Lab assay of single mutants.
Amino acid sequence: KWEEIAERLREEFNINPEEAREAVEKAGGNEEEARRIVKK
């Protein structure tokens, strides 16, 4: 599940997989929260 979210974030925000994974981890697997983290 987290991998899927990280993949979507990576494609959408054009970030590297590591950044995407970190955002999802910080968000506890919550996609909306992960998006907010990435946008900062």
Rank of each mutant, 00 (worst) to 15 (best):
Asn16Pro: 13
Glu22Leu: 14
Ala23Lys: 02
Lys1Trp: 10
Val38Tyr: 04
Glu7Asp: 12
Glu32Thr: 12
Lys1Gly: 09
Glu3Asp: 12
Ala27Glu: 01
Ala6Asp: 02
Pro17Cys: 11
Leu9Trp: 02
Pro17Met: 15
Arg35Pro: 00
Glu33Phe: 06
Arg35Asn: 03
Ile15His: 00
Glu32Cys: 07
Glu25Val: 13
Glu18Ile: 11
Ala6Phe: 05
Glu12Arg: 03
Val38Leu: 15
Arg10Thr: 10
Glu11Leu: 10
Val38Arg: 02
Glu18Ala: 07
Glu32Arg: 10
Lys40Leu: 15
Ala20Phe: 03
Lys26Pro: 00
Val24His: 00
Arg35Glu: 04
Glu18Asp: 12
Ile15Val: 09
Asn16Ala: 11
Glu22Gly: 09
Asn14Gln: 11
Ala20Tyr: 00
Trp2His: 07
Ala34Arg: 00
Arg36Ile: 10
Lys39Asn: 11
Ile5Pro: 00
Gly28Lys: 14
Glu25Arg: 14
Glu3Arg: 13
Ala20Pro: 00
Leu9His: 00
Lys1Leu: 14
Asn14Pro: 05
Ala34Phe: 00
Pro17Ile: 15
Glu31His: 08
Glu4Asp: 12
Leu9Met: 04
Arg35Thr: 04
Arg10Ile: 14
Gly29His: 03
Lys40Glu: 15
Ile15Ala: 04
Glu22Ile: 13
Ala23Ser: 04
Phe13Ala: 03
Arg21Leu: 13
Glu32Ile: 07
Phe13His: 03
Asn14Ala: 05
Glu3Asn: 11
Glu7Phe: 11
Asn30Tyr: 05
Glu3Tyr: 08
Leu9Thr: 00
Asn14Tyr: 08
Glu19Cys: 07
Ile15Phe: 03
Arg21Gln: 08
Asn16Ile: 08
Gly29Phe: 05
Arg8Glu: 02
Ala6Pro: 00
Glu22Phe: 11
Lys1Arg: 10
Ala23His: 03
Glu7Pro: 00
Ala20Met: 01
Arg21Trp: 14
Lys26Gln: 04
Ile37Phe: 10
Arg10Asn: 04
Leu9Gln: 02
Lys26Tyr: 06
Glu3His: 13
Glu33Ala: 08
Asn30Gln: 06
Val24Ser: 02
Phe13Leu: 07
Leu9Ile: 10
Asn30Trp: 05
Ala6Arg: 04
Trp2Asn: 06
Ala20Gln: 02
Lys39Pro: 03
Lys26Glu: 11
Gly28Arg: 12
Arg35Tyr: 06
Glu3Trp: 09
Ala34Thr: 01
Asn16Ser: 15
Lys39Met: 15
Glu19Tyr: 10
Arg10Met: 12
Asn14Val: 05
Glu11Asp: 11
Val24Gln: 00
Glu12Val: 06
Lys26Ser: 10
Val24Lys: 01
Glu19Trp: 11
Glu25Gln: 13
Glu12Trp: 05
Glu12Gly: 03
Ile37Gln: 08
Lys1Asp: 13
Lys1Ser: 14
Ile5Tyr: 02
Arg21Pro: 01
Trp2Lys: 05
Glu12Ser: 05
Glu11Lys: 15
Glu12Phe: 08
Phe13Arg: 01
Glu19Met: 13
Ile5Ser: 03
Phe13Asp: 01
Leu9Ser: 01
Asn16Leu: 13
Arg21Ala: 10
Glu7Trp: 10
Gly29Leu: 03
Ile15Asn: 01
Leu9Cys: 00
Lys1Asn: 14
Glu4Val: 10
Glu31Trp: 13
Arg35Phe: 08
Glu19His: 09
Asn16Tyr: 07
Val24Gly: 01
Glu12Asp: 08
Trp2Thr: 08
Arg35Trp: 10
Glu4Pro: 06
Pro17Ser: 13
Asn16Gly: 13
Arg36Gln: 13
Glu25Ser: 10
Ala20Lys: 00
Val24Glu: 00
Lys39Asp: 12
Gly28His: 14
Lys40Thr: 15
Ala27Val: 04
Glu32Phe: 07
Phe13Lys: 01
Phe13Asn: 05
Ile37Asp: 06
Glu31Lys: 04
Ala27Asp: 00
Arg8His: 06
Glu22Gln: 14
Ala6His: 04
Arg8Asn: 04
Arg8Asp: 03
Arg21Gly: 02
Lys26Ala: 14
Glu4Tyr: 07
Glu7Ser: 10
Asn16Phe: 07
Arg8Val: 03
Ile5Trp: 02
Lys40Ala: 15
Glu22Tyr: 12
Gly28Gln: 15
Arg10Glu: 07
Arg8Lys: 10
Leu9Lys: 01
Asn16Lys: 13
Asn16Gln: 13
Glu3Thr: 11
Pro17Gln: 14
Lys39Ile: 15
Arg21Lys: 12
Arg8Ser: 06
Glu4Leu: 11
Ala6Trp: 09
Asn30Asp: 11
Glu12Gln: 07
Glu11Arg: 13
Pro17Ala: 15
Lys1Phe: 13
Lys39Phe: 12
Glu4Gly: 08
Ala23Leu: 06
Glu19Pro: 04
Ala20Val: 03
Gly28Tyr: 10
Arg35Gly: 03
Ile5Asn: 01
Glu19Gln: 13
Glu3Ile: 09
Glu18Lys: 08
Ile15Asp: 00
Ala34Ile: 00
Ala27Ile: 00
Asn14His: 08
Glu32Val: 08
Asn30Thr: 03
Ile15Lys: 02
Ala20Leu: 05
Ala6Gly: 04
Ile37Pro: 02
Glu19Asn: 05
Ala23Arg: 01
Glu31Arg: 03
Arg8Ala: 06
Pro17Lys: 14
Ala20Ile: 06
Arg10Gln: 13
Glu33Asp: 05
Glu31Gln: 06
Arg8Phe: 05
Phe13Gln: 03
Arg10Lys: 09
Glu25Phe: 12
Glu12Met: 07
Ala27Pro: 00
Glu11Gly: 09
Phe13Trp: 05
Arg8Tyr: 05
Glu3Lys: 09
Pro17Gly: 12
Val38Ala: 15
Ile15Tyr: 01
Arg35Met: 05
Gly29Val: 00
Glu31Cys: 03
Gly29Lys: 02
Glu25Asp: 09
Ala6Thr: 07
Ala34Gly: 02
Glu11Tyr: 13
Lys26Asp: 04
Ile37Leu: 11
Val38Pro: 02
Ile5Gln: 03
Gly29Tyr: 06
Ile37Asn: 07
Glu32Pro: 12
Ala23Met: 06
Ile5Met: 14
Lys1Val: 15
Val24Arg: 00
Glu22Ala: 05
Ile15Cys: 07
Glu18His: 10
Val24Leu: 12
Asn14Lys: 12
Phe13Val: 02
Lys40Cys: 09
Gly29Trp: 04
Lys40Ser: 10
Glu31Thr: 03
Gly29Ile: 00
Glu7His: 12
Phe13Glu: 03
Ile37Glu: 08
Val24Tyr: 03
Ala20Glu: 01
Ile5Lys: 03
Glu33Asn: 05
Ile37His: 07
Lys26Val: 09
Glu18Val: 09
Ile37Val: 08
Lys1Met: 11
Leu9Asn: 00
Lys26Thr: 04
Gly29Asp: 02
Arg21Val: 09
Glu32Asn: 05
Glu33Gly: 06
Ile5Arg: 02
Val38Lys: 01
Gly28Met: 14
Ile37Thr: 07
Glu3Gln: 12
Glu22Val: 12
Pro17Glu: 14
Val24Ala: 05
Ala20Ser: 06
Arg10Ala: 14
Arg21Asp: 05
Asn30Arg: 05
Asn30Met: 06
Glu19Val: 13
Ala27Gln: 02
Glu32Lys: 08
Gly28Asp: 12
Arg36Tyr: 08
Glu31Val: 05
Glu22Trp: 14
Ile5Cys: 03
Arg35Val: 06
Glu25His: 13
Glu33Met: 09
Ala23Trp: 05
Arg36His: 08
Phe13Met: 07
Asn30Ala: 03
Ala23Ile: 11
Asn14Trp: 07
Arg10Tyr: 06
Lys40Pro: 08
Ala6Gln: 07
Glu4Ser: 09
Arg8Trp: 05
Asn30Glu: 06
Ala20Asp: 01
Trp2Arg: 05
Asn14Ser: 11
Ala27His: 01
Ile37Tyr: 10
Ala34Val: 03
Asn30Pro: 00
Ala20His: 01
Lys1Tyr: 13
Arg21Met: 14
Lys40Gly: 15
Glu31Ile: 09
Glu32Leu: 07
Gly29Arg: 03
Trp2Pro: 04
Pro17Tyr: 15
Trp2Asp: 05
Val24Thr: 05
Glu18Phe: 10
Glu32Asp: 12
Trp2Val: 05
Ala6Glu: 11
Glu19Phe: 13
Glu18Ser: 12
Ile5Phe: 04
Ile5Ala: 03
Ile15Leu: 11
Ala6Ile: 15
Arg10Trp: 13
Glu22Met: 14
Lys40Tyr: 14
Arg21Ser: 10
Glu7Arg: 12
Ala27Met: 03
Ile37Lys: 05
Glu25Asn: 09
Glu3Met: 11
Asn30Gly: 04
Ala34Asp: 00
